[in-house]
Nucleic acid binder design. Structure first.
Lengths: 255, 255
DNA sequence: GTAGAATATTGACTTATATCAATGTACCCT
DNA sequence: AGGGTACATTGATATAAGTCAATATTCTAC
């Protein structure tokens, strides 16, 4: 019912922000269906919640975990990062604008640090306050429960990527994951890779060199087109989808 | 406050059942702290829920997903299983006795089938009924929310295993994961590997042959002892923990 | 606009683990 | 108890992706 028609954006904006995502989905305000959590985090009760600004590489401070919290990403990207004792780095999960991350001190100790992978602002809602709100608001509850299982299944998909897929297949999956989670609409052809090659590698269980080679390989295959270093366009949706699903016999990715 | 003292079990029972887990934790009834969800799934409101019996390899039937459900594992093991188009199999997540799995039809379509990896019984609670109960029961709610973030962080840990760990490190992590999730108490030395080598491999993103070799390697190192094919004892906790955390320089696992 | 630093790409080489194939062992059923 | 099937182990080999090192590109700050 919003009077506006979808704006004719063909490439998504560089800066990752909720407003951009919202705009690119073609709807506004309560009409925006792409990131439903955000609006609920924006309720009056939550407006008072502290907003934290982070730069690329910044870690959330320990004191931000002194009680269980829900982080709501307004713009940028955050990740849960873990390091093995010898320094190997993994990014266990990513959160984009409009998404949230449940954390508490014990969890953090177990699984890793929360870091920003770009200039980021997150709203920090104490878990207790959030739970009270959940109890009062059936609609929020419905959305939250729905979203929670979505997130779990995102993690499952990610495990599937890491467990048995080749680098090219992981990369193809990741490109679709980005497209979905950034709510890039159909009519947008090219969009920004919001994190560095190194971070992509650490998320996909690869080395940065391999990410480079695989991206080039996908480009040679005609599946995608790289525009500069940080933008990508999917040229062959079907082909890329097949690669992501492991349908292709094999993709020789080395040179 | 329970009058009973912990039974002197030194090896855990072969059959994976809630009663066994409960017994091996050394407490009984409401005193049993190891698997809190189970008792709540055992409430009067849920007793009416259908129980399904499955054999090793059985898939939950599509009609069991016609509405969103919570599966509560009473005994055995279930897994979410996915297959890439060329047949590669992954086990995305495991659920042991006392644990639960949220599923709905859409999820299932996205992430895979639910299968049993052993003779198993699961209680099938319609999501709607479960949510009503959650609203009424603050204690259940607390436990459920707590458990939900635990499960999420279990998935994170698993991603960390899959992303950057060597086969030996994954295996070491998995042994601890089993020990924890089966609530094997300290005084129990040996316990049963509840799933096949192939399933371990598919959960850890390895091949069955590699699992074999790695287990043998860990045994040679003196970290564990294999008793028959399905029991294992941890001999060197600290050493195994170091391997799991990637602290060891490297472990030559081939022959 | 240029210098310097950070990030990304490319190349040559190594090796861990997958693969393929054979053998061994456990378990189930009659 | 024994025969057959499924599961697990062991061995030999190939290769995908990691590693190390050099070069190129992009970004930032002055």
């Amino acid at each position: 019912m919003s009077g506006t028609t979808p704006p004719k954006i063909v490439s998504s904006p560089d800066q990752l922000s909720f407003e951009c995502v919202q705009k690119s989905c073609g709807f506004e305000g309560e009409e925006c269906i792409c990131r439903p959590m955000h609006f609920h985090f924006d309720k009056a009760e939550l407006r008072s919640a502290r907003t934290i600004e982070l730069n690329d590489g910044d870690q959330l401070a320990p004191e931000d975990f002194s009680e269980p919290v829900v982080f709501a990403v307004l713009n940028g990207v955050i990740a849960v990062e873990s390091h093995l004792s010898d320094g190997r780095r993994s990014l266990l999960t990513l959160r984009f604008p409009g998404e949230y991350l449940d954390m508490n001190r014990a969890d953090r100790h177990a699984s890793g640090e929360v870091v920003a992978l770009a200039p980021t602002s997150v709203k920090l809602v104490p878990r207790g306050i959030f739970e009270e709100l959940l109890l009062k608001d059936a609609n929020l509850r419905r959305i939250y429960w729905r979203r929670s299982t979505d997130i779990m299944h995102q993690q499952f998909d990610h495990s599937s990527d890491l467990g048995k897929k080749t680098p090219a297949e992981r990369m193809a999956s990741f490109i679709f994951e980005l497209r979905n989670r950034l709510s890039i609409p159909r009519f947008v052809e090219e969009f920004t890779l919001p994190i560095s090659r190194q971070s992509i590698a650490d998320y996909l269980g690869l080395r940065a060199e391999t990410v480079s080679r695989v991206l080039k390989g996908l480009e040679k295959e005609g599946a995608v087109k790289l525009i500069g270093k940080h933008k990508i366009a999917i040229l062959d949706f079907k082909g890329l989808r097949m690669i992501a699903n492991g349908a292709r016999p094999r993709l020789s990715n080395h040179r």
